[in-house]
Design a binder for these strands. Structure first.
Lengths: 238, 238
DNA sequence: CCGGATTTGTTCGTATGTATG
DNA sequence: CCATACATACGAACAAATCCG
C-alpha cells in the first residue's frame, strides 16, 4: 500500500492526531507497542524486519527503524547482525520499575497540583468518564487494552501538568517497561473498580491543589499494585 | 571508506571495546555525542544527514539512524521532513536534571554500597588514578573532555554496581542532558581538584559499605554543583 | 570446519514533504 | 498562491554476518 495513502487513512481513523505527517516508522512502532500491550507478542519472541515490513506492506526501512525505536525504549533486546526479540523481564526488574515509579510519580504529582487549572481538570474528567464507561461495560480482551490505554492517558495528563519534560519522559519509559509486564500478568479481578475510586480521589485532590495528599495517595496505591505483581514488595527507601 | 574496514580500525584505536561488531550507526552516534561534549556543536545547530554521511564516508542510512538514536536520547530536536538540530536547553531543564540526579543517584549509591566488592574498588582506583594524572597535568581543551569522560566513567562504575539496569539507563540519560549543558558552561576553576577529593571520599565509603554516608555525600556535592550551574538551585523535596 | 539459508547492514535511486522566495 | 530548492522518507538490490546442518 502507498505510504502517504496509509498515512492519510490512519490520520482519519485516529483523528486529533498531530497533523504533522506522522512517519510510517512511528505508526509501526506504536502498533507493535499495542501488540505488546495486547499480549500478542510473547517475551523472547523474535521480531523480524521482513515480517513486519510485509505485515504493513512497506519496505524494510521503516520496519527496521520502528524496531530500533522500540530498542531505544527498552522494549526489545537487540544484537547486531542477529536481530531483535521482545525483552524478557525478570522479577527483579519489576521491583525496580515499581520502586522508581514510587519515587518519581509522586514528585510529578506535587508539581502538577501546583500548576493544575480547569482545562486539565476538564480533560481528566472526560478521560475518566470514558474509562468508567469501559469499566462498567466490559468487553473481554479488547476492554483490557482500552482500560490500559485510558488509564495511562489519565496518569500522563496529570504528569504533563507538572511541565517537567524529562521527568515525564522517564515516567513514560517506566510505563513502557510495565507494558511488557502485562503480557505475563493480567489485571486482577477488582482492579478496574478500584482504579475508578483512585482516579476520582486524584481529581478531587487536584482541584484542592493538595499536592502532598495526592503524592501520598498515589504512592500508597502504587505500593499496593506492586505487591500484587511481586509479592513481598517493599519500598525500601522511606 | 569500507565500513568493516573502518569498524576494525576504530576497534583498534579504542581497544577493549566489545568485539561484537559495533554498528556504524552506534559509532557515528557516539562520535556526534563526543562532538557535543567537546563543544564542537552548538545548541540549535542543524544536523544534516547528508553532511554526517559524507564526514563518515558512508551512505545516508547509518547517518540517519545515528541521528535518530540521538533523537531518542533527547539530545536533538527532530521534526519529520524538516530535520534535526542540537537541542537548546533552558535553565528550567537544567534544574530538572539536577533535581532528578539528586533523587536517583543516591539511590544507586545505596545499592552499590551493599554489593560492592574488591573488583569494583580496583576498577575505581584505576580510573581515579588516570583521572588525577589528567587533572594534575592539564592540557587545555583536550583534558576538559578527558576529565568529563573519566568522571562519567567513575560514577557509572559505581552505579553499575547497584545492578539496577533501568535506573542505570535513566541516570545515563540524565548525564546525556548534562553533556549538552557543558557546551554552554565550562567547568569552574577549582572543580577538578574538588572532584579529586570527592572521588577519594566515595571510594573510602564504598570500602566501608557505608551506603547512607555515600548517598548523603553525593547528594550534597550534587547540590553544590547544581548551584554553580543554576544559582538559587534548591532541592525542593525534603 | 564448511556451505547454504536466513537475517541484518548498507548503498543508491526516487518520491514526497517543507520552507522560502 | 505557486515554483523551486532542499532535506527527509521510502523502495529495491546487494553485501556482510550469523546460524545450523
Amino acid at each position: 500500500m502507498n505510504i502517504q495513502l496509509m498515512n492519510k487513512k490512519l490520520n482519519l481513523q485516529v483523528k486529533k492526531v498531530k497533523l504533522s505527517n506522522k512517519r510510517m516508522k512511528d505508526i509501526i512502532a506504536d502498533e507493535i507497542m499495542n501488540w505488546i500491550i495486547e499480549g500478542k507478542l510473547n517475551p523472547g519472541q523474535r521480531i523480524i524486519e521482513d515480517e513486519i515490513a510485509k505485515i504493513f506492506g512497506v519496505s524494510r526501512v521503516p520496519a527496521r527503524e520502528a524496531i530500533h525505536i522500540l530498542e531505544s525504549r527498552g522494549l526489545v533486546d537487540y544484537v547486531p547482525y542477529v536481530g531483535a526479540s521482545i525483552k524478557k523481564l525478570e522479577p527483579e526488574r519489576i521491583k525496580e520499575v515499581y520502586m522508581l515509579r514510587c519515587m518519581l510519580e509522586p514528585v510529578a504529582c506535587r508539581f502538577a497540583a501546583e500548576k493544575v487549572n480547569s482545562d486539565v481538570i476538564n480533560k481528566l474528567e472526560i478521560i475518566q468518564e470514558e474509562l468508567e464507561n469501559i469499566v462498567d461495560q466490559p468487553n473481554g480482551l479488547e476492554s483490557t487494552q482500552q482500560i490500559y490505554t485510558k488509564n495511562r492517558q489519565f496518569h500522563m495528563t496529570i504528569y504533563e501538568t507538572s511541565e517537567m519534560t524529562i521527568l515525564l519522559r522517564i515516567i513514560d519509559m517506566l510505563w513502557d517497561e510495565i507494558a511488557i509486564l502485562r503480557i505475563q500478568m493480567a489485571y486482577s479481578e477488582n482492579y478496574p473498580t478500584r482504579m475508578k475510586k483512585e482516579h476520582r480521589l486524584y481529581i478531587s485532590l487536584l482541584k484542592e491543589h493538595d499536592g502532598e495528599k495526592l503524592a501520598t495517595a498515589l504512592k500508597e496505591n502504587l505500593e499496593i499494585h506492586a505487591n500484587e505483581y511481586t509479592p513481598g514488595f517493599n519500598f525500601l527507601l522511606h
